[in-house]
Computed example of a mutant assay.
Amino acid sequence: MRIGIIGAGALGGMFAALFARAGHDVEATARGAGLAAIREGGIRLSGGYGSTHAIIAANETLTVRPDLVLLCTKAQDGEAALAANADVIDGVPVVVVQNGLEGVDTAARLLPRSTCYGLLSIVAANYTEPGVVRVTATAQSYLGRGDGEPDAECTRLAAVLSDAIPVIAIPGFRGAQWTKLTVNMLNAVPAIVGQSVQEVIADRGLRRVVTASMRECVRVGIARGVRFGTLQGLDDRMLRRLARSPLRVAQAVPRRLAARMGDVPNLGSTQQSLRRGQPTEIDFLNGAVVREASLARVDAPVNAALVALVHEVERGGYLPRERVLAVLGG
């Protein structure tokens, strides 16, 4: 099968290398130093899915019509990347591998002849050097769209994607997106203070801020009528209990998530963007909570404050933990 990967960063580079290893014909898009590195030396993958060195075609946009497309850019780059490749990929099945809530709808709007699905990946992958990806934690990934049962095409694509990593087709994808969004509340605080997720969760004060952002995310989802999907050991019952719990009790959830990451320091995707000198996707993570809260006519002050702090870090570098603790008033 000919597979196009739009955005050969951490997850995109991982998928490109693993699909090439499985014998598929892969073309990936990249820019700048990443594109130059892939053209010169391919993609070197190590970690949880083993080591491989994949030599693949790489260009700024896809040059040959693929049989399947994976959109793996950061959420803020997705619309522009799809528009740049639309002439080649409209009518081709598209799998959106992005954080946030909006990617599948954006793809369907820009590619009216394509069938578009979302993939929720909990795989942790570091991409801090062009052309080099290290998988620090493996996990099942979840394919779907909307609120209904997976259709036959979704099931077929899950089998194809499983040539790279384990993927299952799931019902109630929108609810699972909200659960993933809650998990992604682990990103902002590490990015602000320049520490790993594990270090942040080990810090009592910072852990309280992370917990508050997760609890607020779930409360907004409930206000929007969401039934949360099962993901990363979390489910609708557990998250609704999180929404009702005081912070001292609710902290068990981020502790559990950090423990699942193991001992290898997890920087989170937001901090990885900062270390590469790139804009983060914070407006599609904590910022998505703020937008959804506005639609539900409720407030999301914790997440609004974290969005502002991450943008401050983008402009001037890491901030002291006291700035984060001030989110909760001291």
Score class of each variant (00 low, 15 high):
2 R>L: 03
4 G>Y: 01
11 L>W: 07
14 M>K: 04
15 F>I: 05
15 F>D: 06
16 A>W: 00
16 A>R: 09
18 L>Y: 11
19 F>S: 12
20 A>F: 11
24 H>W: 06
25 D>R: 13
27 E>R: 02
28 A>C: 14
31 R>L: 13
33 A>M: 11
37 A>H: 15
38 I>F: 00
40 E>A: 15
40 E>N: 14
40 E>F: 11
41 G>S: 12
43 I>K: 01
43 I>E: 01
46 S>W: 09
46 S>C: 04
52 T>A: 12
55 I>F: 14
55 I>C: 11
59 N>D: 09
70 L>F: 05
70 L>C: 04
71 L>K: 00
76 Q>N: 09
79 E>W: 01
85 N>T: 11
87 D>W: 11
89 I>T: 07
94 V>K: 03
95 V>I: 02
96 V>C: 02
96 V>M: 09
100 G>S: 09
100 G>R: 06
100 G>D: 08
101 L>I: 08
104 V>M: 15
106 T>M: 09
109 R>S: 08
109 R>N: 14
111 L>A: 10
113 R>I: 06
114 S>Q: 05
116 C>E: 00
118 G>T: 03
119 L>P: 04
119 L>F: 02
121 S>E: 04
121 S>L: 10
121 S>N: 10
126 N>I: 11
132 V>Q: 10
133 V>W: 09
135 V>E: 03
136 T>D: 12
139 A>N: 15
141 S>W: 00
143 L>R: 02
145 R>V: 05
145 R>F: 07
147 D>A: 11
152 A>L: 04
159 A>G: 14
160 V>C: 10
166 P>H: 08
167 V>A: 09
170 I>K: 09
171 P>G: 13
171 P>C: 09
172 G>F: 13
173 F>K: 06
175 G>I: 02
181 L>T: 09
182 T>L: 07
183 V>P: 07
185 M>A: 13
188 A>S: 09
189 V>R: 03
191 A>W: 10
191 A>D: 01
192 I>A: 12
192 I>T: 07
193 V>G: 06
194 G>I: 06
195 Q>A: 13
198 Q>G: 05
200 V>N: 01
205 G>R: 05
208 R>H: 00
209 V>R: 02
210 V>R: 00
211 T>A: 06
213 S>R: 14
222 I>T: 05
223 A>F: 12
224 R>Y: 13
226 V>R: 12
226 V>I: 15
230 T>K: 15
230 T>W: 15
240 R>Q: 08
241 R>G: 15
242 L>Y: 10
243 A>Q: 03
246 P>L: 03
247 L>H: 05
247 L>G: 02
249 V>Y: 11
250 A>M: 07
250 A>K: 08
254 P>G: 13
254 P>W: 00
254 P>F: 01
258 A>P: 07
259 A>Y: 15
266 N>A: 08
268 G>F: 12
274 L>R: 04
276 R>S: 05
277 G>I: 06
280 T>D: 12
283 D>V: 07
285 L>P: 08
285 L>E: 12
288 A>E: 08
291 R>F: 13
292 E>N: 01
299 D>C: 13
300 A>P: 00
302 V>G: 00
307 V>E: 03
308 A>H: 15
318 Y>L: 15
326 A>D: 08
329 G>Y: 05
330 G>R: 15
